[in-house]
Nucleic acid binder design. Structure first.
Lengths: 137, 137
DNA sequence: TTACAAGTTCAAGTCGACTTGAGGTCAAGA
DNA sequence: TCTTGACCTCAAGTCGACTTGAACTTGTAA
C-alpha cells in the first residue's frame, strides 16, 4: 500500500460511511480511488475532506448529482456563490417553518383544550402547516 | 349530493392535493369517504381539517403510518404528549444544524479564501456537517 | 501453501409517498 | 338520448440514495 493511501475499510472507518456507499459515490463520480492493490481500491487520504464536503452538501439539501457538479476537474470545490445564497435562503424558510412547528408541538403537548382542534393556538399551527406536504416522495 | 358533503374535486381544490393523493390517503386509512354518488366518493366537509392535521404531521416529520395511529376510532386526534415533545426535540436539533448550515453557506458565499477548504470558518462548517448524511434514502 | 476474511462486480431489491396508465363506469348537460 | 369528461379500480412505475445478494478474487496471516 503506497504511502498516503488508505484502503476502503479505513475510509469507511474515518468517514463513518459503509463501504457500499463509498463504492456508490465512486460510481457516481463523487470520489475517486487512486489505484488498486490487487482488486482492492486505494484512496488518497484527502478523500476524507471530500466526503465531509459531500456530507455538508447533503445536509444543505443538495442532491448527489448537484454536488457532483460542484467539483472542478482537479478536484477542488467549485461553488457558485449565488447558488449558495439561494440555498441559504431556502434553509431560512425551512428553519422558520420548523421553528413554528416545534413551538406548536410543545404547545400541543400541554394544551388544556379537550381536543386539539378546539385550541386556537393549535389551529393556527395547523393552518401554518400549509397545504403542500414537505419532503420528497 | 347530500348536504354537507363534497366530492373529491372539491376536496382536492380546498386542500390543494391531487385526487390521486386523496385516494391513496383513503386506502391507507388516513381519511374516510362517507358515501358514494354512483361511483364517486363523497366526503364530509370536515375532511379538510383532517387533511390539515395530516399535513401538519408530515411537516413535523411523522410518517403516514405514524399519523394514521394518531387518530382515534371516532376520528378525533389522539396524540401522545410525550411523543410530541420528543418530536419537538428532534426538530430542535434539526433546526440548530440547519441554522449553522445556513450561516456557513452565507459565509462561504463571500469568503475571500482561495479555496473553501483553506478557510477555517468553512472547515468548521464541514466538520459540523458530521459524518452521517441526512434525510432518507 | 493454504485458508479465509475482506475485498470485488453486477444486478436487483428497498423504502415512502405518491403518480401514471390502461381500461371501465356513469351523472349530468346539450 | 347521447356524449363527454370526471371519476373509478388495480397494477405497475417513479424517484434518490443506497443496500443486499450471489458469485468471484486475492493479499495476508498461520
Amino acid at each position: 500500500m503506497p504511502p498516503g493511501t488508505i484502503d476502503i475499510a479505513e475510509v469507511s472507518r474515518r468517514a463513518g460511511l459503509p463501504a457500499s456507499t463509498l463504492r456508490y459515490y465512486e460510481e457516481k463520480g463523487l470520489i475517486r480511488s487512486v489505484g488498486r492493490n490487487g482488486l482492492r481500491r486505494l484512496f488518497d487520504a484527502n478523500v476524507i475532506n471530500r466526503l465531509a464536503l459531500i456530507s455538508l452538501g447533503r445536509h444543505a439539501g443538495f442532491t448527489l448529482d448537484e454536488i457532483g457538479e460542484m467539483f472542478t476537474e482537479n478536484g477542488t470545490p467549485r461553488i457558485d456563490r449565488s447558488e449558495l445564497l439561494e440555498k441559504a435562503d431556502d434553509l431560512d424558510r425551512t428553519i422558520k417553518k420548523l421553528t413554528a412547528m416545534r413551538d406548536g408541538l410543545r404547545h400541543a403537548a400541554d394544551c388544556p383544550a379537550p381536543s386539539h382542534l378546539e385550541c386556537p393556538t393549535f389551529r393556527r399551527l395547523v393552518d401554518l402547516a400549509g397545504k403542500r406536504p414537505p419532503g420528497r416522495g
